[in-house]
Simulated assay, not measured.
Amino acid sequence: MARRRIAGLLALSAFAASALAVAARAGDFPSLRGERFADVRVDVRPLLALGAGAQAEALRADLTAALRSRFASRLGGRGPSLVVLVRGFSLRPYAGGGTNGRSGFGGGSQNDYLDGEALLVARDGAVLGRHPQLTATPSSFGGAWYDPQSERRRVTAIADIYADWLVRNLPAD
């Protein structure tokens, strides 16, 4: 019961944050002009405040690893840090490939969501730029719903996809 309550709170947080993200402009993330990021960090404090605990920590670990991998050639400099603030995260209850009368990839409308904002943060803590991003993946990406590792694979999958899109959307130079 508590798990469903947390999932509901996280879903509500994701939709509220996505409404705010639409209002922000994606072009507010400046080019580093050849400079490298000093570091990459993932902030899941909003999820921890909602009681997400172990799932939030798993997401932090997976997203940090994915971002460091995708941005490897752009890390290790003296520039600002890339910080991804995760505002919402939702793993939908997934009970197989029911399509609710529709056909399509991923079993209808059963999607997982990761809502965050990439922040370009100077050494003094000033936010120099921001890029909101909402990622949705089919819940089936974790494999068979009855497999005990399915939920953990879903966390890894959405972190990887979020990182893939972020590296494509941020200025490369």
Score class of each variant (00 low, 15 high):
residue 86 V to Q: 06
residue 49 A to P: 02
residue 118 A to T: 03
residue 137 T to S: 06
residue 109 S to W: 15
residue 92 R to T: 14
residue 136 A to H: 10
residue 114 L to I: 10
residue 147 D to K: 15
residue 83 V to Y: 06
residue 106 G to V: 09
residue 74 R to V: 01
residue 59 L to S: 01
residue 79 G to P: 05
residue 54 A to E: 07
residue 62 D to P: 09
residue 55 Q to M: 14
residue 88 G to W: 05
residue 124 D to A: 14
residue 147 D to A: 15
residue 113 Y to A: 06
residue 150 S to T: 12
residue 45 R to V: 04
residue 130 R to V: 05
residue 114 L to H: 09
residue 123 R to P: 10
residue 104 G to Q: 10
residue 101 G to H: 03
residue 60 R to I: 04
residue 145 W to C: 02
residue 132 P to H: 08
residue 136 A to M: 15
residue 67 L to A: 08
residue 80 P to M: 05
residue 98 G to V: 11
residue 60 R to Q: 14
residue 118 A to D: 02
residue 85 L to T: 14
residue 58 A to P: 02
residue 102 R to N: 12
residue 90 S to F: 07
residue 66 A to D: 05
residue 108 G to V: 05
residue 101 G to F: 10
residue 60 R to T: 05
residue 55 Q to C: 08
residue 97 G to S: 14
residue 50 L to S: 01
residue 97 G to P: 06
residue 60 R to D: 04
residue 54 A to S: 06
residue 124 D to K: 13
residue 67 L to C: 05
residue 110 Q to A: 15
residue 143 G to T: 12
residue 92 R to V: 09
residue 125 G to K: 11
residue 84 V to K: 01
residue 118 A to M: 05
residue 124 D to Y: 15
residue 76 G to N: 12
residue 113 Y to C: 01
residue 87 R to P: 04
residue 150 S to C: 14
residue 60 R to H: 09
residue 126 A to N: 12
residue 97 G to D: 12
residue 61 A to Q: 09
residue 119 L to F: 02
residue 141 F to K: 13
residue 111 N to M: 13
residue 70 R to S: 06
residue 52 A to W: 02
residue 103 S to H: 14
residue 45 R to Q: 12
residue 149 Q to P: 11
residue 82 L to K: 00
residue 46 P to S: 00
residue 58 A to H: 07
residue 118 A to C: 08
residue 50 L to W: 07
residue 63 L to Y: 02
residue 46 P to W: 04
residue 49 A to N: 13
residue 50 L to F: 07
residue 122 A to D: 13
residue 85 L to C: 11
residue 102 R to K: 15
residue 66 A to E: 03
residue 67 L to M: 03
residue 51 G to E: 07
residue 62 D to E: 12
residue 68 R to D: 06
residue 93 P to V: 13
residue 59 L to R: 00
residue 63 L to D: 04
residue 65 A to N: 08
residue 92 R to N: 13
residue 86 V to R: 03
residue 81 S to A: 15
residue 119 L to K: 08
residue 149 Q to F: 12
residue 96 G to P: 08
residue 120 L to P: 02
residue 79 G to L: 10
residue 49 A to H: 06
residue 107 G to K: 02
residue 57 E to R: 11
residue 103 S to C: 07
residue 139 S to C: 12
residue 149 Q to Y: 09
residue 115 D to T: 14
residue 93 P to G: 10
residue 62 D to Y: 05
residue 48 L to A: 08
residue 99 T to D: 15
residue 55 Q to V: 13
residue 126 A to D: 13
residue 131 H to M: 04
residue 74 R to Y: 00
residue 135 T to M: 07
residue 61 A to W: 10
residue 47 L to M: 10
residue 126 A to W: 08
residue 119 L to E: 09
residue 84 V to F: 03
residue 89 F to Q: 02
residue 50 L to R: 06
residue 85 L to Q: 10
